[in-house]
Write a protein that binds this DNA or RNA. Sequence first.
DNA 1: GCCATATGCGGGTATATACCCGCTCCTATG
DNA 2: CATAGGAGCGGGTATATACCCGCATATGGC
Lengths: 133, 133
Amino acid sequence: MSTPCYCIELRAAARKTSAIYDEALAPFGITIAQYSLLRKIDRAKRISLTELASISDLDRSTIGRNAKVLERMGLVQSVSGKDQREALLELSTMGQKVLAESIPAHAAAQAKIEDHLGGPDGAKDLLSRLHSL
Amino acid sequence: MSTPCYCIELRAAARKTSAIYDEALAPFGITIAQYSLLRKIDRAKRISLTELASISDLDRSTIGRNAKVLERMGLVQSVSGKDQREALLELSTMGQKVLAESIPAHAAAQAKIEDHLGGPDGAKDLLSRLHSL
DNA sequence: GCCATATGCGGGTATATACCCGCTCCTATG
DNA sequence: CATAGGAGCGGGTATATACCCGCATATGGC
């Protein structure tokens, strides 16, 4: 057997864990990707698409489309800042509520994954390897 | 700082490595996901969508759509087996050629990733952690 | 103050991915 | 041998993601 493809293995792992988190978050009607965005917007209070894309390490147009979904869901609203080009995102009241409610579910998923990895040390090790990529 | 989300980190790592492999494979007009499918079809000689989905750990409908792209590209052809429901995939002559040509590029990407991970040991370690997920 | 350039976004297009529904075809049970 | 249940697929719909192009706005050099 030759060495497996690191990329394919990573993609599979990402899909698998995403399914676990998505299932945990399903009762709140959001996915792990959406949860992550809500969290980042919440932390920033107000953030532009470009900035959010930057801290998320995602393409700006991707963020734009994902944000549009959150807006349609009523979890996020877009306000304009001084720079008329900018669309600043912030959580709606419902967005704050949904985020707060889903945090425990996310924590449970985190614990589950950590458990699979043999505890905090194994998890830390995985993260460190991922970061060296 | 609280613990980062394992899922988000995995997704980011998968995106990042995918970009590296995609770039390496771009001269041959295929993505890493397509390369992986071509490789699996090649190994099996002939394989059904359901079976391919099974070994790929992907949804059958996903495989069906991805295979359709490969067919449109002329890299794969679908033949029907004894069971009339089955659509057996096999590489076309061009598919074999493209796969053969892109193998070195893929190997180069593998080496690059392995390098990031501090050599074969680090890479093996990452794979082992991913597999325990 | 004006224009060249840079910045911020939206939209088009394409792949990757999943879930669900419905159709077709196969197979085992009575 | 007929039919019920199961297996294999396609297609609808939706999110996630990236790249490129074009439009609007800001800004800096003159």
